[in-house]
Amino acid sequence: MSKYQTRKLVNYFNLVASLVVTALGLFMLAWILSVLFSKGFQYINWAVFTQMTPPPGSAGGLLNAIFGTLVITFFAVLIGTPIGIMAGTYLSEFGANSRFSSTVRFINDVLLSAPSIVVGVFVYTLIVEPQGHFSGWAGAIALAILVIPVVVRTTEDMLKLVPQQLREAAAALGAPRYTVTLSIVYKAALSGMITGILLATARIMGETAPLLFTALNNQFWSSNMNEPIANMPVVIYQYALSPYEDWQNLAWAAALLITLSVLTMNIVARYTLKGSSSR
């Protein structure tokens, strides 16, 4: 075989391999989603949204878990977002090139990918252990720690996209620095910042590991954040690995619901971002 033919063959082989692995990646997504739909969809009914998680062997729903996840996620975003936005603002607007900012940026990027279970253990030793009991607040704080790096990163990136002339124009009119940031820069970067918050919400909604040691679970209705509180991920974990068929079925229904919410939020976030950048 001539050298030319060998080169062509190698090229052909590698390109076909690229095509195959891409198809494989797409197939995996399709496989996972089809499993979720075929197993989960049949168990989604009215009871899932109106009844509490049942004792083994009887029918029930996920009302308390859905409520718990919404509440914990809400408070986590409520705590994490302002911290993240202010920190991102500092990195972009005040200390862009200082050594302090580079350190914060570096550490933030490490925290962005840090194992979430370690955050769970951290909050356990910080809050659960001294208090002596698991609580919804501990869960919300653990998730807030996961929200912060995402929001810091997107806020900084989005603020940096705002043209410098806009800031200078506002400053030339005599606006103080904080007015420039709050009413000019934030306004220009708003949709990007909202995208960041959406992505952070999507990330924490399905997080299980940090909640295992903090919010734990609660079989009954509870809206008290000072007590263990039911939530979807931990319900999925416990029910999927249980020997009871009713529980496993509920776990599949919960898995479908949580995945759909997370994926929808992701797609909406991307759409928002695309809409704002093309403008």
Binding site: T22, L29, V35, A202, A240, L263, R270
Partner: peptide, 24 residues
């Protein structure tokens, strides 16, 4: 579309991979 589909794999919660992995 292909890029987004691949990135969506990252958005699927870890526990879903666990269930799919264990049962399928």
């Amino acid at each position: 579309p292909v890029g987004i589909a691949i990135e969506l794999l990252a958005a699927v919660p870890s526990i879903i991979y666990g269930m799919w992995g264990l049962f399928y």
